[in-house]
């Protein structure tokens, strides 16, 4: 059974959920799995619509995961018309834009009842250095329970509305978020027989810049 296109879903969601603005995120790979970007405030209402809508019935949340994008300088080649020595020419210039880093939580939704999918939902939050919070979808799909805990554990993203947000894989006393792209590995300074000034100074590099409490 063919599912609606993502554009149709987007239009219907925006009509049904007041105030929700979705953005279509294009995917250029041959898989052509495009996704819908939803704001953190409307994520719950939009997800609830996707789950309960009789045409979609996305009752199965297969995969939940985080993605970390660092601050980056994107360079793009642009053709610009310029007047060189009195003659108008088309010159190729490299246009540089700065992109602020952000964190994403990605949900892959399928329907077990109607056997279609995936619809990919993303929540994006900028400001990687502050404690970041997104909306938990565990109240809608229990399968997100452990997976959101894992995202919190490895990325330091808080989930608003999660019933039991604790670390899943790392131990409770662990302070950093290992899946972040700027994570610095520990130097195993504990195994130094007499950890002294230099070693302790080096160990500071992997201390977290900020701490997020659940």
């Amino acid at each position: 059974m063919a599912m609606e296109t993502l554009e149709q879903i987007k239009a219907r969601v925006e009509a049904a959920v007041p105030g929700a603005q979705l953005t279509l995120v294009k995917n250029d790979s041959p898989s052509a799995q495009h996704s819908l970007l939803v704001s953190v405030e409307h994520a719950f209402a939009v997800a609830k619509f996707l789950r309960d809508d009789p045409q979609l019935r996305l009752d199965y949340c297969s995969n939940v995961t985080g993605v970390d994008f660092l601050d980056a300088e994107l360079s793009e080649k642009v053709k610009v018309k310029k007047v060189v020595d009195g003659v108008e020419k088309e010159v190729e210039e490299v246009k540089k834009t700065k992109r602020a880093g952000y964190l994403e939580v990605v949900y892959h939704l399928y329907s077990m009842a109607l056997k279609h999918g995936p619809v990919i939902l993303r929540q994006r939050i900028s400001g990687r250095s502050d404690p970041v919070t997104v909306t938990s979808l565990t109240p809608l799909w229990r399968s997100a329970e452990f997976q959101e805990r894992e995202v919190f554990d490895l990325y330091g993203i808080l989930f608003d509305g999660h019933p039991d947000l604790r670390r899943l894989l790392m131990w409770d006393g662990f302070k950093d978020y290992p899946m972040r792209k700027d994570y610095v590995e520990p130097d195993d300074y504990e195994y130094e027989p007499t950890a002294h000034d230099e070693v302790l100074e080096k160990a500071k590099a992997h201390m977290p810049k900020h701490e997020v409490k659940a």
Binding site: N27, D28, S29, P30, S31, Q33, S62, N63, H108, P118, I120
Partner: peptide, 10 residues
């Protein structure tokens, strides 16, 4: 080197 993009396979 695959082209930029994403895929979920199962």
């Amino acid at each position: 080197r695959p082209k930029p993009g994403e895929a979920y396979g199962r």
